[in-house]
């Protein structure tokens, strides 16, 4: 298929749009998450969404995307609150809290999924489609839901940009100015949950960690300015999404989600190695040139 054929193909257009939307939103929100040292939140919350998807189906009997995503969002959000609360209230470290929420929520969801699949009206309910990212099954309607979610997340981020910036760099100063760190943390977590909802169907639960961390980690290597970092991160996320989706469409049996993540990994490794100011190789080159000649 030639490039024009690819771009006019209905299925592929949906996949490309979905992947690009995911890349932009997770790139923007990932920047704040990574700067706060909460990049793995995406991993935990993506797993925590499973019980919500199953409960939403069990309660309503509907498999409509907005219904299931609402359930996913509520479960992930509750998981996030529980996580923040465990970290604040106990002496457990953040990574232990992440692991607890991730594994317990996901496995509880698995019990519910087993129950859901047993229901007579559920012909293998297809609920796990929302977890393992089957980008190729995206239809126009899914992409519209994703676009709405993306618009909400980006507008909300823009609205509280200044506050999020304070939260990322100097939470103490922020709270001294009267911004509640608690509420802001919850706000950021809520926005990250929205990014995850977009990602579940495109790359799936396991790879969501990469979508939130990768673009931001790559962008960080090129700049010291937050605004530039956000723009670069969004661009890297979108580029990985589009390139991954195109490669996956160009040959058979290349799953889209993993391909997107591998494209992203190339961008991350490239940035870490070659970025002019912080890259490993430029740094090595500078120290080598600065080192005095060894006397004979």
């Amino acid at each position: 298929m030639d490039l024009l054929g690819l771009l006019t193909d209905y299925t592929l257009r949906n996949v490309l749009l979905g992947a690009a939307l995911l890349g932009v939103v997770s790139g923007v929100l990932g920047t704040f998450a990574v700067l706060r040292g909460q990049g793995l939140l995406g991993d935990a919350l993506a797993h925590a969404a499973l019980p919500g998807i199953c409960l939403a189906f069990l309660l309503t009997g509907s498999k409509a995307m907005p219904v299931l995503l609402l359930g996913a969002g509520v479960a992930a959000w509750l998981g996030a609150l529980l996580l923040l609360w465990i970290v604040r209230q106990t002496r457990l470290a953040q990574d232990a809290a992440l692991g607890i929420v991730l594994a317990v929520f996901f496995e509880f969801g698995l019990t519910l999924l087993t129950v859901a699949n047993r229901r007579p009206d559920a012909t293998q309910a297809g609920l796990d489609r929302y977890l393992f990212g089957q980008a190729a099954t995206l239809v126009g309607e899914n992409v519209i839901v994703m676009a709405v979610l993306a618009a909400i997340a980006l507008l909300a981020t823009a609205a509280v940009y200044k506050e999020l910036k304070l939260l990322a760099f100097d939470p103490d100063f922020g709270s001294s100015l009267g911004f509640g760190v608690g509420p802001l943390s919850v706000a950021l977590t809520t926005l990250i949950t929205v990014a995850i909802l977009i990602g579940l169907q495109t790359v799936g639960v396991v790879l969501m960690a990469a979508m939130l961390i990768g673009p931001a980690a790559a962008a960080r290597q090129w700049t010291n300015r937050l605004s530039t970092m956000i723009a670069l991160s969004a661009a890297f996320g979108a580029a990985a999404g589009v390139v991954g989706a195109l490669i996956s469409a160009s040959a058979s049996r290349i799953p889209t989600g993993p391909m997107i993540v591998l494209a992203l990994t190339v961008i991350v490794v490239g940035s870490i190695l070659f970025a002019p100011a912080r890259g490993v190789l430029p740094e090595w080159w500078r120290t080598r040139r600065a080192a005095p000649e060894t006397p004979a």
Partner: peptide, 25 residues
């Protein structure tokens, strides 16, 4: 260049993705 948790989040999805890709291909 990156924090510890970012390092984890970069490495394991990449390896998992590679595993899924090889399996399905």
């Amino acid at each position: 260049k990156v924090t510890k948790e970012a390092a984890i989040g970069i490495v394991f999805p990449a390896l998992f993705a590679l595993g899924v890709l090889i399996t399905s291909r």
